Computed example of a mutant assay.
Amino acid sequence: MTAWAAAEPVKIVGFGDSLMAGYQLAPGESFPEKLEAALKARRHDVLIANAGVSGDTSSGGLSRLDWSVPDETELVILELGANDMLRGIRPDVTEKNLVAMIERLNERGIGIVLAGMLAAPNLGAGYAEAFDPIYPRLAETYGLPFYPFFLDGVAAERGLLLEDGMHPNAEGVDRMVEGFLPVIEPVIEKVLSARAGAPNDG
């Protein structure tokens, strides 16, 4: 039973907005698909489901969390808040929704990697001062593995973005995956270690 469990792939859900969904990208080019391919190339047995919904806010994510994340999920990449920021939603509202999602996943025994976001410069310093600290604060409070800025190395790089200047193109997704790997690989190892230490139910 234990050997069988160890042989099962680690089941991961990428839960987010258009940055996760793969807005205007071809099949195989979304972040979950490219991350799965990169992890498999590094000998990690994983299955990553894409639960990204373009245009989703933290409120929308909270409302669909339970049915978007199946019970057998072992790890969720939580990436929401960019649309809240673009719509000027109050940062305290975003934070409350993220807290609710984190606590619900914790209750279900599902691990979380938190992907952070930064406010766009045109929203002003005041908004950024309220919005930007949300993610590091939550990561510290809940002891979550944390990738500080999901678009790190991609934002404002025209060659890595679609024509809209906001969403990553396929090369941009490659850059995001490259940055994300050092954060998620140790988490996958912890999932496997926890499996190995779990009692054998029969």
Rank of each mutant, 00 (worst) to 15 (best):
A82N: 09
A198N: 05
V99L: 05
A41P: 07
K34N: 01
P182E: 07
V154N: 12
P133Y: 02
M117Y: 11
I184V: 15
A21L: 04
G28F: 10
G61M: 00
M166E: 08
N97R: 00
K40E: 13
R104V: 00
I184L: 05
I112G: 08
S30R: 05
K11R: 14
I48V: 12
G22S: 04
R195C: 02
D66R: 12
L192C: 04
G60Y: 00
G111N: 11
Y135E: 04
P145F: 00
G153T: 07
A130I: 13
G61V: 00
A5Y: 11
N200R: 13
R195W: 06
N200A: 14
S58F: 00
I77W: 13
R175E: 12
A49K: 10
N122P: 09
L105M: 05
E74L: 06
A198W: 06
R137G: 14
I112N: 09
P91S: 02
N106H: 13
Q24W: 09
A194V: 09
D132M: 13
A130K: 15
R175C: 08
S193N: 11
P199M: 00
G153H: 10
G61C: 03
G172K: 05
E140Q: 14
G197W: 05
P186M: 08
P9A: 03
G52V: 02
E129D: 14
A3G: 12
G197L: 13
F131K: 09
G14C: 11
T57E: 00
L39S: 10
L19G: 03
A38F: 12
K96H: 02
G55P: 08
L162M: 12
R104I: 03
S193Y: 12
L65V: 00
D92W: 02
K11C: 07
E163T: 14
I188T: 10
D201P: 10
E163A: 15
G126V: 14
E185P: 08
A51P: 03
L75K: 06
V191Q: 06
I134H: 00
R137Y: 10
K190E: 15
N97M: 01
D152H: 15
L80F: 00
S18H: 04
R137D: 12
A125V: 15
L123P: 12
P182C: 02
M166N: 10
V187E: 09
F15G: 03
A119L: 03
V113I: 11
A6L: 15
K11I: 08
F150T: 09
I48G: 09
Y23D: 01
